[in-house]
């Protein structure tokens, strides 16, 4: 028996919004420690890794580890029908073929029950090693969304160059070019609005703009985002979710051949 209850549907809505355009289907791996999901986009250059820790749920029970193969669009559509403040309980029998969803309104005067058919999702599980990153940039997630959106009007690659002085996002396209530099915040009145740049070694790497734009749509998950860059490893973009866990996106760099 698997059962997980979140107090507010809002967080699940935000999580599903952040991954469902990138990932069509995936396996929710449910175990005693929580729910995780690893899924690639259809072109296999990016990967989403989601972790929802059991402590982040109001109630959590998973007697034995199970894989729930889910169509993300279907799940997203159903969860969207819940009120933001509704409690949501996800459930599945050990050998069940459906994922049950129960929404309860705050006044407990409305209860909705849905079932989604489970599917066989053939997804390879990858071991993601802990990478040594050369650069870690923490910045407001809204700013990251704005920068990627603004540069996406010009070019299909964004070069991210980082030194101790700042981080530069630049692009070139048929119609011209553009670049935006962010400097490290000198005074930090508000942690969430700060730009913090940690540099072990300066680095410049190029990435597909359309994926950065996709990732940056997760801004609702956290006011801050971290970009982790290293030589020879994929970019890791992380949106932490307080006690709940995180959504991480990995993207292969564009390498000149």
């Amino acid at each position: 028996m698997f059962e997980a209850r979140v107090a507010q549907a809002e967080i699940l809505k935000k999580i599903l919004d952040s991954v469902r355009e990138l990932v069509e289907q995936g396996n929710l791996d449910c175990s005693g420690t929580g729910i995780s999901l690893q899924a690639m986009d259809s072109s296999h250059v990016s990967l989403v890794a989601l972790l929802l820790k059991s402590e982040g749920f109001e109630r959590y029970r998973c007697d034995r580890s199970i894989n729930l193969g889910i169509n993300m669009q279907s799940l997203g559509k159903i969860v969207k029908t819940a009120g933001n403040h509704d409690a949501i309980t996800l459930s599945s029998e050990d050998k069940g073929d459906v994922l049950g969803l129960m929404f309860e309104s705050t006044e407990q005067d409305k209860v909705s029950n849905y079932e989604i058919k489970l599917m066989d999702v053939d997804a390879e599980q990858l071991a993601i090693p802990v990478a040594e990153y050369s650069v870690c940039v923490r910045m407001p997630s809204a700013e990251f969304a704005r920068i990627t959106r603004d540069l996406s009007t010009i070019g299909d690659s964004v070069l991210i160059s980082c030194t101790k002085d700042g981080v530069q996002f630049s692009t070139t396209g048929d119609t011209g070019s553009g670049s935006i530099v962010l400097r490290q915040s000198s005074s930090v009145d508000d942690e969430k609005k700060a730009v913090v740049i940690e540099v072990q070694e300066p680095i410049s790497l190029s990435f597909a703009t359309k994926f950065l734009v996709q990732f940056s749509k997760s801004a609702a998950l956290n006011e801050s985002v971290t970009l982790n860059l290293g030589d020879g490893v994929p970019l890791m973009v992380e949106y932490p979710m307080k006690e709940m866990g995180y959504v991480r996106f990995y993207l292969a760099p564009k390498l000149s051949n």
């Binding site: 690639m40 296999h44 250059v45 990016s46 990967l47 390879e124 599980q125 990858l126 071991a127 993601i128 090693p129 690659s157 190029s206 597909a208 490893v233 994929p234 990995y250 993207l251 292969a252 760099p253 564009k254 390498l255 000149s256 051949n257």
Partner: peptide, 14 residues
């Protein structure tokens, strides 16, 4: 022309 490797080439199978 820049190339993007498959993301699986960076991560091992579990």
């Amino acid at each position: 022309i820049p190339v993007q490797k498959n993301i699986t080439s960076y991560f091992g199978n579990r």
